[in-house]
Write a protein that binds this DNA or RNA. Structure first.
Lengths: 152, 152
DNA sequence: GTCGTTGCAAACGGTTTGCAAATCA
DNA sequence: TGATTTGCAAACCGTTTGCAACGAC
């Protein structure tokens, strides 16, 4: 899954031409579990020695988003968009407020709720957005270590 | 609730000085059920004959947000922030994608879900954000009228 | 060869900021 | 009067766009 050929196939499956910037952006998204902003992706490309333009990165990400290949998420704290590969079933996230790690949650408790709300309000519900915020285990442990001066 | 004196009391209760811009912004927020962007609030002020500056509107809204007097919501479609009076219990919204009307939903289906997720992931869940998107009855009716060429 | 894609640089637009003048308590 | 708040204009910054050159197929 990590060699260039597979990214080409991947792009092809989504009806997209194989270009150098697209493969590289895809490569970064595959290698990263967390949300990445356009700027971060651009920086990683530069560090990898790529000569690519910011606007190209934005255009590629926009294209990927349109084709449902990636998901675009707004991060309120920094007022930026972040991107991540869109895997089937990844609809709900748990986001650590400290390290921004994103955890996928399978299963959705809202379908029944949506039905109820639709009935009560007369709305056609066409979608929802659910984010849970919290501290992941690692960050919580660091907190505990620092706060109470436990060993290390 | 509509005369100037009450806005002054309101501001005072939140520990804020009474200034003309603040009272006027508050007045607009009280008179509007829907989400308003900073720009929209600014425009309403101009139309009402106020001589106020955009940056003042932003500063007032930021202050109100800090003091939990209003709630700041990001509208993904237009990439703008919108504001509304923060009333106790208004935690979940139903938002019409067409006219941006906001409907408050009482009751939250997520507490139990949060507990389950916390147990499964090891996160401390400290909050969530839930938005349902859809078409309100009015907009849906307009759609139907336009789309199928019904009377009118 | 043709059309889509990229690089470049400039624009865009919502929001923020520095500073001096005005205003509130 | 002394601390805050406002107006103004300019900056900011993430993102978008027009256009000419480039590259995929």
């Amino acid at each position: 899954m990590t060699d260039s050929k597979n990214y080409e196939e991947f792009l092809h499956q989504y009806g997209l031409k194989n270009t150098r910037p697209r493969k590289r952006v895809l490569e970064i998204l595959f290698g990263q579990e967390e949300l990445l902003t356009a700027e971060e992706i651009y920086q990683e490309l530069l560090e990898a020695g790529e000569t690519v333009n910011v606007s190209t990165v934005y255009r590629v990400l926009e294209l990927f988003t349109e084709k449902k290949l990636v998901e675009k998420t707004f991060l309120p704290e920094t007022r930026k968009y972040a991107f991540s590969l869109r895997m089937p079933g990844h609809v709900h996230y748990l986001i650590c407020i400290r390290c921004h790690k994103k955890v996928d949650l399978s299963g959705c408790p809202l379908s029944e709720y949506e039905r109820k709300v639709a009935a009560n309000t007369g709305f056609d519900i066409i979608g929802h957005r659910l984010e849970l915020y919290g501290l992941c285990k690692e960050c919580r442990d660091k907190d505990a270590a620092g706060g109470t001066e436990q060993h290390e």
